[in-house]
Simulated assay, not measured.
Amino acid sequence: MPTPDILIGARAVVFDAYGTLLDVHSAVQRHAGSVGPDAKPLSDTWRQKQLEYSWVLSLCGRYTAFWTLTERALDYALARHPNVDPSLRPALLEAYRRLDAYPEVPATLDALRTQGLKTAILSNGDTAMLEMAVSSAALHDHLDAVLSVDPAGVFKTSPRAYDLALERLGVDRREIVFVSSNRWDVAGAAAYGFTPVWVNRTRQPEEYPDLAPVQVIDSLGALLR
């Protein structure tokens, strides 16, 4: 298989986890029958607040484990959508610990490694949270490294978070293709000097025009084309 242009000169492909390899909405979807008609808005609010809390803490110079932020965000989402039974909280949190991977993920990771590239996760998720998620999705054998921002003590898009990939993989930033479904994360990777790829599965509009992705794809499998 010929090497796609985006991968020429790369030594590693680093992925965001939540929303990129793992479907963050699969937790609520798993219990959609019990959640009821507010399932989608509940899931959207949960995700929005989870990310918002990470950005606010980073700007304040503070750090709290991402799992704690996930719990707090769900509490807000349940309060925001009072028609959802709050007794579902434990089940929803357990489902979030064991999110579904997108179906193309294992084959894509294996194909990249076959081409001699290192594969890794760099995630805002804390170490314990990531360990359970990656194990549950059976992705460990497809990855060379699973990196939490925990050691940096700050969330992406801080450069200190992206530094962790260089330290662990032993490559230059220009030798890393960074893949995320989160446009803000792609902007951070572009500012840092990675080669950023945006996985735009839901056809969101473009933003951050000064920090553009090198490539926009609709699924991870498109990395190989």
Rank of each mutant, 00 (worst) to 15 (best):
Thr3Pro: 14
Thr3Phe: 06
Pro4Glu: 03
Pro4Ala: 05
Pro4Trp: 01
Pro4Arg: 05
Asp5Thr: 14
Ile6Arg: 04
Val13Trp: 04
Val13Pro: 14
Val14Cys: 02
Val14Arg: 07
Val14His: 05
Phe15Ser: 00
Phe15Asp: 00
Gly19Cys: 01
Leu22Asn: 03
Asp23His: 04
Asp23Cys: 01
Ser26His: 06
Ala27Gln: 02
Ala27Trp: 05
His31Arg: 06
His31Glu: 04
Ala32Met: 03
Val35His: 06
Gly36Lys: 10
Pro37Asn: 06
Pro37Tyr: 09
Pro37Met: 06
Asp38Ser: 12
Asp44Ile: 10
Trp46Thr: 05
Trp46Asn: 08
Trp46Asp: 00
Arg47Tyr: 00
Gln48Asp: 10
Lys49Gln: 13
Gln50Lys: 09
Trp55Met: 12
Trp55Ser: 09
Ser58Gly: 12
Leu59Asn: 10
Gly61Cys: 13
Gly61Lys: 14
Gly61Ala: 09
Arg62Phe: 06
Tyr63His: 10
Tyr63Asn: 13
Thr64Pro: 14
Phe66Trp: 05
Trp67Asp: 08
Thr68His: 05
Thr68Trp: 00
Thr70Gly: 11
Leu74Trp: 09
Asp75Arg: 14
Leu78Gln: 13
Leu78Lys: 09
Ala79Glu: 15
His81Phe: 07
Asn83Tyr: 06
Asn83His: 12
Val84Asp: 12
Pro86Gln: 06
Leu88Pro: 15
Arg89Gln: 09
Pro90Thr: 05
Pro90Glu: 02
Glu94Met: 01
Arg97Tyr: 01
Leu99Asp: 07
Asp100Ile: 05
Tyr102Leu: 02
Tyr102Ser: 02
Thr108Cys: 01
Asp110Trp: 00
Asp110Lys: 06
Leu112Ala: 02
Thr114Lys: 11
Gly116Thr: 09
Lys118Asn: 04
Thr119His: 06
Ser123Phe: 07
Gly125Lys: 00
Thr127Ala: 06
Thr127Val: 11
Met132Cys: 04
Ser135Tyr: 00
Ala137Trp: 03
Ala137Met: 01
Ala137Gln: 05
Leu139Arg: 01
His140Tyr: 00
His140Met: 03
Asp141Lys: 13
Leu143Gly: 10
Val146Pro: 15
Ser148Lys: 14
Val149Phe: 10
Val154Gln: 07
Lys156Arg: 13
Lys156Ile: 00
Thr157Gly: 02
Ser158Pro: 15
Pro159Asp: 07
Arg160Pro: 15
Tyr162Trp: 08
Leu166Glu: 08
Glu167His: 14
Leu169Glu: 08
Gly170Met: 00
Gly170Ile: 10
Val171Tyr: 08
Arg173Pro: 14
Glu175Asp: 11
Glu175Ser: 03
Ile176Ser: 04
Val177Ile: 05
Val177Pro: 03
Asn182Glu: 07
Arg183His: 11
Arg183Trp: 02
Ala187Val: 13
Ala187Cys: 12
Ala187Leu: 06
Gly188Asn: 04
Gly188Glu: 03
Tyr192Gln: 09
Phe194Met: 08
Thr195Ile: 10
Thr195Val: 13
Thr195Pro: 04
Pro196Phe: 00
Val199Asp: 08
Arg201Leu: 01
Thr202Ile: 05
Glu206Gly: 09
Glu206Asp: 15
Glu206Ala: 12
Glu207Thr: 13
Glu207Ser: 15
Asp210Met: 11
Asp210Trp: 07
Leu211Arg: 14
Ala212Gly: 14
Gln215Cys: 05
Gln215Phe: 02
Ile217Tyr: 01
Asp218His: 10
Gly221Arg: 02
Gly221Leu: 02
Leu224Cys: 03
Leu224Pro: 03
